[in-house]
């Protein structure tokens, strides 16, 4: 009997089982990136930079050349890798603590230089790996292990809106925010990731896809409740949308 493959693991993912918690959306985003890399046929020229945080072991899951950066420094490391091999595709995969706290200078300047790299930014409003402390993106009032009475903005300040911030840089070509909560939003996130990589291939400048993600373990919710929390609370503070899409990117498609 002739058989046709209708569903398979992307070549850009390894067979290694991930260490992510049940209901965490890191795995979903890994898969979207891998599917896009396969679709664009760029696996053999793509180099990933893993962050410090829950995705620190991403180098075990992507079937690509991968470097593991110091906390927050992925965009600087990506800059070095890309500048000496401009024909390669270089992307960073970073969480909110990594990108929006300790690595704020690196991401802002990489974007501002129009560094021809792509950043996939996972915003789950919490430090996952260290056990649920306040992140720069933790919502006002949100309880974490370091804001046990809820984030008091008078003490801890306000959450940072990264996509909006990066969209103000002249070097950015494509900056959008998506979420991965149900098939329709996941499909939309995949399209955005694809466009971000295409923008890099077309040498149009810096591209960033912010993805609102869930962290059931540290939020104290079950996976389904966590996805609802993303839609109800996170998307309210961090509106989905296209924050900067230059004309050259619009005409890619």
């Amino acid at each position: 009997m002739e058989r046709k493959v209708v569903f398979a693991k992307p070549e850009a993912l390894t067979d290694a089982p991930t260490h992510y918690c049940p209901g965490c959306t890191h795995g979903v985003v890994h898969r979207l990136i891998a599917e896009v890399i396969d679709k664009l046929g760029i696996r053999e020229i793509t180099i990933g930079i893993a962050p410090v945080g829950c995705a620190v072991l991403a180098y075990n899951y992507f079937n690509l050349d991968v470097a593991e950066a110091a906390h927050g420094r992925a965009p600087a490391m990506a800059t070095g890798l890309k500048r000496v091999q401009p024909d390669k595709v270089v992307f960073t995969y970073q969480g909110d603590g990594d990108l929006a706290a300790i690595g704020t200078a690196e991401i802002v300047h990489a974007a501002s230089r129009g560094e021809n790299i792509t950043t996939i930014f996972i915003n789950n409003a919490v430090y996952g790996m260290t056990g649920g402390q306040m992140a720069p993106t933790t919502l006002p009032g949100q309880v974490t292990t370091s804001t046990p009475f809820g984030r008091d903005v008078k003490i801890a300040g306000y959450p940072l809106r990264v996509a909006e911030l990066i969209a103000t840089t002249s070097g950015a070509a494509y900056v959008v925010r998506r979420m991965v909560t149900k098939p329709a939003t996941i499909a939309s996130a995949k399209k955005a990731i694809k466009l971000a990589f295409q923008a890099q291939r077309a040498e149009l400048g810096f591209s960033l896809v912010e993805i609102l993600s869930s962290c059931p373990t540290n939020w104290g919710l079950n996976p389904r409740e966590a996805l609802e929390w993303v839609e109800e609370n996170m998307a309210a503070y961090y509106p989905l949308g296209d924050y900067k899409v230059i004309d050259e990117v619009k005409s890619l498609k």
Partner: peptide, 26 residues
């Protein structure tokens, strides 16, 4: 060849790290 003025020494050394990972003399 590649010259880049970084935003800090932290970034500069991590750019060096990245280029070194690619095998460049840096």
């Amino acid at each position: 060849r590649v010259f880049l003025q970084a935003e800090s020494e932290l970034s500069a050394i991590n750019m060096v790290y990245g280029a070194a990972c690619a095998g460049a003399r840096v």
